[in-house]
Amino acid sequence: MSATGSTADRQTVLVTGASSGIGAEVARQFAERGHTVFGTSRAPEKVTDPIPGVRYVRLDNADQGTIPALLAEVGDIDVLINNAGESQAGALEDTPMSAIEDLFAVNVFGPVALTKAVLPGMRERGRGTVVMVGSMLSSFPVAFRSNYAATKSALKAFAFATRREVAPYGIRMISVEPGTIATGIGDRRSIHIGEDSPYRAEYETLAAATRRNEDAGIDAPTMAKVVVDAALASKPKPFYAKGNSAGIVFLLRRLAPRDAVLALTARKHGLPWIKA
């Protein structure tokens, strides 16, 4: 496959969570390159700023029952970008199990179910690409983001393990980890911290640092280009990361002791390192 977007190379692309943020920019860039693009939203009729060349279709990641109707409407899919998801923060002790289960339903089980649904068609046609959009919090977990980091770690593991499984059938599995992105996701993040929680003071410190980091993060078009280029590469790598000085910090992760990496991650988010 080529990234030129010519008619001969035109792919049918499904981008989940295409109504805002990275997903909207990924859909835009695929459309600008001449591909047939479908973008999902829980309420496609309410998309206020539709992207030219993108057709919006309904999908609720938390409801796997919405998948059959989606695929019936879209047809064969060449490229699936599993981007839709939710963000969550707070103390593990203060977070109800129901909230954790709901987060996994949206961020993990929904994307995995959709991937399973498109794999048979890709396998029969002998080609296809699936991109799991994760988070660098998977590689660099930080306090008060445990549930979110765990969901993104699960997506990465699915992509890495399934890559070899589907490779004989011409299907490519790719994991992409964005660093801190300035998309306003912090305004939509669910938060679980008790008013009188013993963790509240440190959580507020982390939350303030997170807001500063997100305000200074890379923009959605820059991150989207990484996703689109990876999906259209003739020989994609298993893993891509962008933002938060990714090249340097991943090198440090390979060379430095785990405690040192965890300490630096904590400090990046305003917290002193306390060795357990």
Rank of each mutant, 00 (worst) to 15 (best):
T129F: 03
A209R: 10
K268G: 12
G85Q: 09
V226A: 05
K225Q: 14
M173N: 05
I77Q: 03
V26N: 01
G179E: 03
L70N: 09
E214L: 15
D215Q: 13
V228T: 04
E124D: 15
H35K: 05
P44R: 03
T95M: 15
T151V: 11
P272R: 11
D94N: 07
G23R: 01
L70M: 15
P52G: 10
R172M: 05
A149C: 09
S234L: 11
L271W: 08
L271C: 08
L206G: 05
N244A: 07
V133L: 12
R163K: 12
E93L: 14
R127I: 00
A260I: 02
G65C: 06
K152G: 01
L262P: 00
V79I: 15
T205D: 10
I81Q: 02
A27S: 12
L119V: 08
V74E: 04
D63P: 11
I193Y: 01
D63N: 12
A105Q: 09
I171F: 05
A18W: 01
G110C: 12
S20T: 14
I218W: 01
T210I: 04
G194H: 03
A201N: 06
V226M: 10
A161E: 08
I181M: 15
L251T: 15
D94C: 13
S20L: 09
P238A: 05
S20W: 03
Q64F: 04
A207R: 07
M132T: 01
A89N: 07
V106W: 04
L114E: 11
F109A: 12
A157D: 05
E101L: 13
M136W: 01
A149Q: 08
G170C: 11
I171S: 04
V118W: 02
V26L: 00
F104H: 13
P272G: 07
V118I: 13
V74A: 13
L251G: 04
F104A: 06
A256L: 15
L262T: 14
T162F: 09
A43I: 00
E177C: 08
S138Q: 03
D63E: 14
A43Q: 14
T222I: 05
Y240W: 07
E177L: 05
A231R: 06
I100T: 12
A201R: 09
A209Q: 10
A209F: 07
P178S: 09
G23D: 02
I51R: 14
V166M: 13
M173F: 07
A220M: 09
K268T: 13
A105R: 11
V26E: 00
T36H: 06
D229S: 06
S153I: 00
D78N: 09
L59C: 06
G186C: 01
P178R: 04
L206S: 11
A31W: 01
A31Y: 05
R258E: 14
I191Q: 11
D49H: 11
D76K: 00
G39L: 14
Q88G: 09
T210Y: 00
F104V: 02
G85S: 11
T222P: 01
L251Q: 02
I191T: 13
S139I: 00
R267Q: 12
